[in-house]
Amino acid sequence: MTGLSLNRIWAVLTKEFIQLTRDRLTYAMILAMPLVQLLLFGYAINSDPHHLPTAVLVQDHGPMARSTLAALAGSGYFEITEEAATPAELDQALALGRVQFTITIPADFSRRVVRQDRPQILIEADAADPTATSGALAAAAGLPAEALKRDLVGPLARPGSGPPFEVVVHRRYNPEAISAYNIVPGLLGVILSLTLVMMTSLGVTREYERGTMESLLATPVRPLEVMIGKLAPYVLVGLVQTALILTLGRALFDVPVSGGWGALTLGVLLFIIGSLALGFLISTLARSQLQAMQMSFFYILPSILLSGFMFPFRGMPGWAQAIGTVIPVTHFLRVVRGALLKGLGIGELWPSLGALTVFVLAVSALAMARYRTTLD
């Protein structure tokens, strides 16, 4: 047994570097993955979101009410985007997710402040994601002591008499701020993405590597028939995973099920089919199972970080929210959480269901086009 040879080691090392530079996709992933992680964690992720959309119902337009709204906006957490005319409009804006908070100022607010009756204002929060609302509600707790300092001067001053009004907070859809109510429905989208996209891309790419796809290409089977035949078993896998997660979420974590079964079923089917079609598309682009796995992770990582699963969606900057809106997991999570926690139906969730439909059609068309190119 001879000793180590630096020349032989150098030869093998040179060969590996040459092979790495020839595999351009792998080389790009090596450079792109840390860059993407740095940008996402450094700029996009924020666990204490500010400027959250807020709808208000102002029944008193006196100076005290205006000062209170100005103090809310000045806190940096509340951004008034809608002004409702009725309580029903407030409920609808909160349920559909257009706003994170609703604020109601009663008709006699200013008069009761002057009379030292300590009136109440109501703040309702969409607490389906407790992390997104905790900072804003903590800031609202100090509002009564600070909001009217400039108004209650002179004859209206009352030192030592306590706050001039009270803030009543209602946490909707998750009143106890239990994180499992938000995490468990979100896990459904992440797990389906991890398993279905990766299983499909690796499975089809494996057939290319082993040569069995060449035998299939020699048959008169059409591309759409190949795609349907290969993906159909995984649809059942996805449905079994969905049933298992929802059942265990209810049994172990007591995740509420408010209804919305029609929207939930349609959303699950669209997302499963779209994820499988995406995996099939990746298999037509990858030349090895390693590349297929790398490309799958390149899709899954933003899906976890930018969809609102781990971090509040509205806490991200505008450019990150724009990217997150394109990711199908974002819309799937809105469907699942909206159906389970809020009881929303197809009519209320049609924007997200429509986005999932576009995702399925676009990815399926691209996969078919790529597969026909492979046939040629």
Rank of each mutant, 00 (worst) to 15 (best):
R210K: 10
P164T: 10
I18Y: 12
D376S: 14
F280A: 00
D23R: 13
Q100M: 15
P256R: 06
M227W: 00
G354I: 00
T265Q: 05
E79D: 08
L248P: 09
T265I: 07
H331W: 08
Y27I: 13
L31V: 15
D60M: 08
G162R: 09
L281P: 02
T133N: 06
G324K: 12
E89D: 15
Q59F: 06
T81M: 08
T200K: 00
T247D: 04
V221K: 03
S352M: 09
A362H: 04
S296V: 08
M368A: 09
A243W: 02
A141G: 08
L188M: 05
V167R: 05
L192W: 01
L69Q: 12
M199C: 14
I272P: 00
D129Y: 11
P159I: 09
G279K: 00
H50G: 12
P87G: 02
N7F: 05
I121K: 03
L216E: 05
E166S: 07
Q120E: 05
I45T: 07
G229C: 05
G279C: 03
T26Q: 08
V268H: 02
G260I: 09
V257Y: 03
P302W: 10
G345L: 15
G354K: 01
G347Q: 14
L6V: 13
S275T: 10
R158Y: 10
F101T: 01
T242M: 06
H51G: 02
G262R: 11
A132E: 13
V113E: 08
P155L: 12
G135K: 10
P119R: 01
R150V: 08
P317E: 07
M213C: 02
N174H: 14
